[in-house]
Simulated scan of single mutants.
Amino acid sequence: MPDAIPPIARLLTIMAALRDKTSGCPWDQVQDFATIAPYTVEEAYEVADAIAAGPDPATLRDELGDLLFQVVYHAQMASERGWFGFDDVAQAISQKMIRRHPHVFGDAAARDAGMQTAEWEAEKARERAARGESGTLSGVATTLPALTRAAKLTKRAARVGFDWDSAEQVLEKLEEETQELRAELPAADPARIADEVGDILFVVANLARKLDLDPEATLAAANAKFTRRFQSVENTLAGQGKSPADATLAEMEEAWVQAKKSGL
């Protein structure tokens, strides 16, 4: 395929060829929105991973290309159904960004930060209404990671005044939910325990939001910290000729404390 073709046009041509009913790739021919959606989510996470890791320009470029391909894939399937094409997707997002940024593309008076925020939210509300969505919590995607969705739900509720005044009050609620979980432990009813643990996680996500933190990012950082420290525990034990399975909890705890003191 000639390189003289503009890159986006070339990519669209490649996608159409992959989906061609007679000469296309057998795997690509049978895919639909539902089967491709998990790959779209996966590619978005891989972009985030590439950014968190450095980023390395070449790696980030490649990951962004993979994510762009997902958009092209969905647009091609929509085009085959006569719904819309890639150009329509690009046009729609362009129009949306112009509508949501009058302080850049229109009214100079809207450059005030408070007016910008108000107009952004008003425009999003108009868009939700146009889609027939009603209610404060409408439009918060159910497929978001649970902690992210919890933070977004409570942020929406906070906009209409349903919120705690301070992070300290959220901590008090967390203590209350913890006590409720303790009360359920003796009966050991799995459904009740799961419900209470869910409440705790929801409150923790709300606490992160109240502190202007991303709950997914903070948990990802905690995961990375745990991984570093546990790997240090394994290395310490290996130096003693042991594996974690061979060591006592006390020995692993001692190695864990050492890892913490070393700054891991």
Rank of each mutant, 00 (worst) to 15 (best):
E253I: 03
L219S: 04
A75R: 04
D3E: 14
K152C: 10
R10H: 07
F86R: 02
R159W: 03
H74P: 01
D62E: 12
A9M: 01
L181R: 04
E251P: 06
A247Q: 03
W120F: 15
A158D: 05
G82R: 12
I14K: 11
Y73S: 09
L264K: 11
Q116K: 10
L171A: 02
T40W: 10
L18N: 11
D28F: 14
E253T: 09
I5T: 15
Y39R: 04
D32V: 04
M77T: 02
A205V: 12
A221G: 08
A194T: 13
A4L: 02
P2E: 10
A125T: 13
P6N: 03
E184Y: 00
Q76L: 06
D62L: 00
A75H: 03
E180F: 03
A17M: 08
E119R: 15
E63V: 05
R159C: 04
I51D: 00
K96R: 12
Y39H: 07
A157K: 09
A146L: 13
E121P: 00
E254Y: 00
E177M: 04
A255K: 07
G82V: 08
A167G: 06
Y45A: 13
M115V: 14
L207W: 07
Q169D: 06
G241L: 07
M97H: 15
A113P: 15
E127Q: 07
R99E: 15
A205L: 12
R61E: 14
K242T: 04
G135Q: 12
I93R: 06
R19W: 08
V41E: 14
P2W: 03
D20R: 03
V233M: 09
A194Y: 08
A4C: 02
K210H: 12
V204H: 06
D214L: 00
G114C: 00
K155S: 14
G161L: 02
Y73V: 07
A37H: 10
S134I: 05
L207R: 02
I14E: 07
D20C: 00
A208R: 04
